[in-house]
Amino acid sequence: MSKIMIVEDEAVIRQLISEELQKWQFETFGTTDFHAVFDDFQSQAPQLVLLDINLPVYDGFYWCQKIREVSKVPIIFISSRNTNMDMIMAMNMGGDDFVTKPFELDVLVAKINALLRRSYNYVEGSQETFAHNGLILNVDNSSVEINGELVDLSKNEYRLLYILMKNHGKILSREKLLRALWDDERFVDDNTLTVNINRLRRKIEQAGVHNYIETKVGQGYIVP
Rank of each mutant, 00 (worst) to 15 (best):
G218F: 10
G148L: 10
R201C: 07
F130W: 12
R118M: 06
E104F: 06
R81F: 11
I6A: 02
P102Q: 12
G218E: 12
I67E: 00
S173L: 05
Y58F: 13
F77M: 09
E145F: 03
F29R: 09
R117K: 14
I136M: 11
F187A: 03
E175N: 13
V123R: 14
M91D: 00
I17Q: 03
L50V: 10
D39K: 15
G218K: 04
I6Q: 03
N113S: 08
L55M: 12
L21T: 05
M87V: 12
I171T: 15
V217S: 12
I78Q: 03
E19I: 07
A114E: 10
S119I: 08
R202S: 09
D40P: 11
N121D: 11
S173G: 14
E124R: 15
A180N: 15
N82Y: 07
E157N: 02
E27D: 12
E20A: 14
V123C: 11
S142V: 06
V217Q: 11
T194L: 10
R118F: 14
N167R: 13
G220T: 10
L16W: 09
K66D: 03
E104I: 03
S154F: 00
E104M: 15
H210W: 03
R199T: 09
R81G: 01
Q42I: 12
I88H: 08
A110C: 10
D106T: 13
L153H: 03
M5W: 00
Q65C: 07
N92T: 04
R159W: 00
R118V: 07
E175M: 03
E157V: 09
E145P: 00
R117H: 13
Q15C: 06
Q206G: 09
Q42P: 01
E185H: 07
G30N: 10
I53C: 11
G95Q: 03
R201P: 01
T83H: 07
Q127H: 15
Y212M: 11
A90S: 14
Q65S: 09
N133T: 14
V151Y: 01
R202L: 07
N211V: 00
F38D: 15
R14T: 11
R68M: 05
D152L: 06
M165R: 08
D96L: 14
S71E: 04
C64M: 05
D52Y: 05
F34E: 06
F26D: 04
N113P: 02
F130G: 02
N198L: 02
G134R: 14
A36P: 06
K166N: 11
V188L: 07
N82A: 13
K170C: 07
F26R: 01
E145D: 10
E124T: 11
D40T: 08
L172K: 03
I78A: 01
P224Q: 08
V209A: 08
D9I: 09
A110T: 14
D52W: 03
V57H: 15
A36H: 07
Q206E: 10
M165W: 02
K66I: 02
V109H: 09
D33T: 12
L137K: 06
H168W: 10
D33S: 13
I171K: 05
A36G: 03
Q47L: 09
H168F: 10
V57P: 10
I4R: 08
G220I: 01
F38I: 11
S126K: 15
L177F: 01
K203H: 06
G218Q: 04
T28E: 05
L48F: 08
M85H: 08
